[in-house]
Amino acid sequence: MQTQTRTEGYQDSIKATFQLFLWTFAWGATLALAKFGPESLWDSDTMSWAAVALNVGIGIGWIVAHARYLRAIDELQRKIMQDALAITLGVTWVAGFAYIVADSADLISYNADAGSLAILMSVIYVVATAAGHLRYR
């Protein structure tokens, strides 16, 4: 039967997941290099710019790998991921602007940086993905 040999989709999703993992790891490593390199590894603006450029280049590869991953996974997994991305974008947007207006009104003393935003987005994405998997368990 023709459909009984349809295992390529699942294998493609495993391959795409592994590639996304590698790109994510590479992006994180180059980010750490660009962040800590100027402090401890070199004393050159050229090297710092090169590290930033490398991080941006790897970041573009990571974006492409993520898009490929979303195309390779099956339709339920894609729905879970898209829901998680939508929740992450929505919460970040709402929380971000709430922080901006509260900060401009001098209501809060905590100074958030870009790292806080990245951590917030990561936590929301992981929680939303886990919730999606539980929902369709």
Partner: peptide, 23 residues
Amino acid sequence: LAQFAGVSRQTINAVEKGKFDPS
């Protein structure tokens, strides 16, 4: 069935339980 249909086992389970409508 998941292998034959080229999807994950979780997808088959969700369809069987009526939690997810397939494309």
